[in-house]
Write a protein that binds this DNA or RNA. Structure first.
Lengths: 115, 115
DNA sequence: CCGATTGTTCAACTATTATCGAACCATGAC
DNA sequence: GTCATGGTTCGATAATAGTTGAACAATCGG
């Protein structure tokens, strides 16, 4: 009775709360993931931090935090899940915010770049 | 031996960390204060939430969180302190961010407006 | 100098978050 | 159907943050 509902709930764009969005983005690993999602959606397994695996329950928790804040979508995709940034929704609700956060000048590039 | 140093430390603009800034802004009462600071600096006593007083130690704690993240300055000003938004510094380090946060469309106006 | 005012810091407590193993479940492949 | 894969949820524990009273400091007015 604990299984995963196929479709997870996502808040409507109009209901997004700025402080919740800011909080979700205020964690370094979550922010890094959001930046990796800026270009393209990722399959769930690709959401792992670039260096070193973390337990899947921990990853799932971070995805939940981002999803419930309305930052990302998490949709069924075959056997996996497709995680995507709700960029349009965020832009319409909080103009300029997500761009400012994702395009921070001087930020280390997200993803496998770090060597 | 626990007294307040006259000048409190403020991080350099170059050292500001985005996740720390986002976290500092992710609290509703802190965000409200930041919005009230958007126009003009406030004396410390004017930083009280508009409805209902909070203990001074609690207020001081929130100011510390904002100050250490680099969101505000807190400078001696006679017997009081002058609290101001580091808007220029934030704008140069994270272009567009502080404007997006402070000018959120549809946000309730900050300050004593709520009746 | 003395008192009132404003405000920081400390310490203790509470509450919220993060982390992670274990249990469970849906899907796709066979 | 059965198995392997990918992923959510639960429950417990650890870590971090918020709240507050009390102690202490610096300033200004008399």
């Amino acid at each position: 009775m604990t299984g995963a509902p196929r479709e997870l709930p996502h808040p409507d764009t109009a209901d997004l709360v700025l402080t919740d969005v800011l909080f979700a983005l205020s964690d370094p690993s979550r922010l890094d993931l959001v930046r990796r999602l800026a270009d393209r959606p990722l399959e769930g397994s690709a959401c792992q931090p670039v260096n070193g695996e973390i337990p899947k329950s921990t990853l799932s928790h971070h995805l939940k935090t981002l999803r419930e804040a309305g930052v990302i979508r998490n949709d069924p995709h075959g056997r996996q899940r497709l995680v995507s940034l709700r960029r349009q929704d965020l832009e319409s609700r909080f103009p300029g915010l997500i761009t400012a956060v994702v395009d921070e000048p001087g930020a280390a590039p997200p993803g496998p770049i770090d060597l």
